[in-house]
Structures are given as structure tokens and as C-alpha cells.
């Protein structure tokens, strides 16, 4: 049983939905990443996606494009991502997936990458430009090192395709909420709901999570009616950017604000926070 599967099983038993949160490694700077992971962990993230920045992130909207560019200006590498996870693991067992484009992974060496990731305490991989059709590049190495490989589906995926992705994926199936980039506005909750209901019916082997365009607790509640959970990235990136661009704010206050932001995404506005 992987850490990720355990997490979903536990949440399911409790009747709770999972919240996955995305942060770019090295954003806003390499020194803050581990602290930020702990802050969102404390704020209720059930798993974390750590973004491996790439020079040409072609499925990303502006927030993650910006965070990637900023991280790369700091010279962040894959080795840094492993170090961050290793450090995070000293204090937390919350699952961590590495998310990023295939080229840096390929350049690193797929086998060496999976080995180093697993050794650092990484639980799985999300590689948005590696569809299952090209997945042979990584599936064996990932499996050998006990890493889940999450594949994605989209509103325009056929039923057959969704079933095939479910067959191939481990960890969970990532339902992209709309045809668009990360951080784009969701076009009509009803349309997305219909698609997620279809996906719910077809995804039988894995938990189903929805991501892209979720900006609030209300969005998350709406969309996760039909899924096992939701994933948020761009609005969190925007919030971190805002907090770090405010120059005279002490680090602890920034981290505290990020924790509250995460908790609010999960449980709603602070008034309802007492239960959390």
C-alpha cells in the first residue's frame, strides 16, 4: 500500500474529500519551499504536489508560468526537489507527488530520477505532457521504485479513453476540469458536473480527483461532489506571490497566512474554522 493510497482509503472511511495543493519548488525562493510545504500541510493538505519548474510549461496559465520562471531564476534543479522532499519527510508523512514536464526528467535519466525520488520520500509523479501513450518511458522505472504515476483525463476524453487511463494510472486519476490552462476560469459548473459524473462512472480502479480552475472553497465543494477530492494550484501560487511581494511582512506571518489560506480552501471561511 502506498502512502497515497492509504491517505485516500482513510479519507474515504471518514467520508471526507481529499485536498491536494500545488506549489512550485523554489518559488518564491528556494529557502521558503520546505516551510511552505509544512504550512499547507498544517493547513490541511491531504497530499502535496511539488512542481518541478520547466522553461516551457505549455499547459500552464500565467500564475504557474510566473512561478516557474521565478524558481528557475534561482537555479532550482531536480536535485533540489529531492532535497526539499527529504527535508519535509523529517517532520511529515503527508504524501508528496512531483509534478512537472517530462524533459527535465528525461534529461536526468528516468531510472535515476525514479530511484532518487523514491529515496527522498516521493510518493508519485504527475507529468502533464506524458500521456499514457508515451508512458512506457517511465512506467517500469516508476513501478520498480514504488512510485505512483498519475495520468490525466479531460472533458473531451472519450469514455474508452477514460477507462484506458484508469487502467494505466496508479495513485489516482486527475480529471482536468475544463479544456484550458491551469488557473483558467471554469466555464459553467453544470457542464463540469456532467463530465465529472461521467468520469465517476468510468473510473473504477483509482480515486478520482478534479483540478484546474478551482479558486475557492465553494468551487471545490461544487466539483468534489462527484470526485474523491480536488487539487488547487494557481490561486495558492497567487497568494504566495502576493505575500512575498509584500516586503515588510515577517516570514512567520506569511507562512501563517498560507496555512489559513489552505484551511479556508478546505473548510470555508474562518467562521467555520472551529471544527478544523
Amino acid at each position: 500500500m502506498s502512502r497515497l493510497t492509504d491517505t485516500f482509503t482513510t479519507l474515504q472511511q471518514r467520508g471526507e474529500t481529499a485536498m491536494g495543493l500545488f506549489l512550485t519548488n523554489g518559488f518564491p525562493n528556494p529557502e521558503s519551499t520546505v516551510d511552505l510545504l509544512h504550512a499547507i500541510d498544517a493547513g490541511g493538505a491531504d497530499f502535496i504536489e511539488l512542481g518541478m519548474p520547466f522553461s516551457d510549461p505549455l499547459a500552464e496559465g500565467l500564475p504557474i508560468q510566473r512561478s516557474s520562471a521565478r524558481a528557475l531564476q534561482h537555479g532550482v534543479t531536480l536535485a533540489d526537489a529531492f532535497a526539499v522532499v527529504r527535508k519535509f519527510r523529517e517532520r511529515s508523512e503527508t504524501p508528496v507527488l512531483l509534478m512537472g514536464y517530462i524533459n527535465p526528467v528525461y534529461r536526468f535519466g528516468v531510472e535515476a530520477f525514479c530511484e532518487a525520488a523514491a529515496a527522498a520520500g516521493v510518493d508519485g509523479l504527475i507529468l502533464p505532457d506524458l500521456p499514457p501513450d508515451e508512458g512506457a518511458l517511465i512506467d517500469d522505472a516508476a513501478q520498480a521504485h514504488g512510485l505512483d504515476v498519475v495520468y490525466l483525463i479531460a472533458p473531451n476524453s472519450t469514455d474508452e479513453r477514460i477507462q484506458a487511463v484508469d487502467e494505466r494510472a496508479t495513485g489516482f486519476v486527475y480529471a482536468v476540469s475544463m479544456t484550458g490552462l491551469t488557473g483558467s476560469a471554469i466555464d459553467g459548473v453544470d457542464r463540469v458536473s456532467a463530465y465529472l459524473q461521467r468520469a465517476r462512472r468510468l473510473v473504477t480502479e483509482n480515486p478520482l480527483l478534479v483540478g484546474f480552475g478551482i479558486r475557492s472553497h465553494e468551487d471545490a465543494q461544487h466539483l468534489s461532489t462527484h470526485t474523491d477530492g480536488f487539487i488547487v494550484g494557481s490561486v495558492l501560487i497567487n497568494e504566495v506571490e502576493r505575500l512575498w511581494d509584500e516586503t515588510d511582512l515577517p516570514l512567520q506571518e506569511r507562512l501563517q497566512a498560507v496555512e489559513v489560506f489552505a484551511r479556508t480552501l478546505k473548510h470555508g471561511a474562518p467562521a467555520a474554522e472551529a471544527t478544523g
Binding site: L58, I102, D129, P131, S157, T158, V165, V176
Partner: peptide, 20 residues
């Protein structure tokens, strides 16, 4: 048939583009 020229080519794209 899958668009590979030796080891090169293929279709490394986000899932949204697969149906397209």
C-alpha cells in the same frame, strides 16, 4: 503507426490534445 521516427517523434502532449 504511433508517429515515431526511430526513438524520436511521438506525441508528448497534455491529455486535452489527445482527442484533437
Amino acid at each position: 503507426a504511433t508517429g515515431h521516427f526511430g526513438p524520436y517523434g511521438g506525441a508528448f502532449v497534455p491529455e486535452i490534445l489527445v482527442p484533437a
